[in-house]
Computed example of a mutant assay.
Amino acid sequence: MPFDNDIEQMMNYLERFCKAPHIDALDNVSDEQVNLLLDFLTLAHKLSCDIYATSNLSCSHFLGIGVFATSQDRAPQGNLFVKVESDNLYLSFELEECGEESLLTPIRVIDALIYLAERTGHAHLPEDYIKQ
């Protein structure tokens, strides 16, 4: 496990990307899904994917994950989103509806990582984008 079961390190990592209301929403998500999310974010970052928090606190999708050009001056619309809805985490391509087919499970994570690994790019954190 990338975090060596260090819960504090896991939460610090997640809080770098998520806004407070989204972190609160994760309180109702199962520990297994949160752990899977953290592993997924770690691996996505190692694949040089952009990972950024969304600015709209009312949105259910709170993280965008994708591959983008370094010249972009704002967090762009991504090609893969992590959403929290009805106390479950979902991987969603282009904001598709949440359902059993997109629930965050190990096989869905593998599919998403394969999708991302086929592209190249540069890893950006939300603070890396120029504020306008």
Rank of each mutant, 00 (worst) to 15 (best):
S71K: 12
L91P: 05
K46S: 08
F62E: 02
I7D: 07
K83S: 14
L95N: 13
F68S: 02
N56V: 11
D50R: 03
H61T: 13
I110N: 04
L113R: 07
H22W: 05
H22L: 01
N12M: 11
H22E: 01
I110G: 01
L113M: 09
V67D: 00
H124C: 13
F40M: 13
E32Q: 11
D27R: 14
I65F: 01
D87H: 09
S92N: 05
A20F: 07
G78S: 15
I114G: 07
G78D: 01
S86W: 03
R16I: 09
I110L: 08
N56A: 11
S60R: 10
V67Q: 05
L37S: 04
I23G: 03
E127A: 15
L103V: 15
M11C: 06
L116S: 02
P126H: 01
I114P: 00
F40S: 05
I107D: 14
D24T: 14
K46P: 01
T70E: 03
Y115H: 13
L47I: 10
S86D: 14
E85D: 15
S102F: 08
N56C: 07
Q9C: 11
L95D: 13
D4E: 11
E96T: 10
C59F: 08
L89M: 06
K46M: 13
A112L: 11
F40Y: 14
E85F: 11
M1F: 06
S92K: 03
D39I: 06
P76H: 01
Q33P: 04
D39C: 05
C18L: 14
S60Q: 10
E100L: 14
N35Q: 10
E94L: 12
D73S: 15
V109R: 05
C98S: 12
L125Y: 08
R119C: 05
H22I: 03
L125F: 08
V82S: 02
E97P: 07
R108T: 06
A69C: 05
L125M: 08
T70F: 00
V109T: 10
E118A: 13
C98G: 01
R16V: 09
F40D: 03
D73W: 07
Y129L: 06
E101T: 15
L116K: 00
N5E: 11
L37P: 04
F81W: 10
L41W: 01
L89T: 04
I114M: 11
Q77V: 12
Y115Q: 10
Y52S: 12
F17Y: 14
T120W: 01
R74Y: 09
Y115N: 07
H122D: 11
L103S: 03
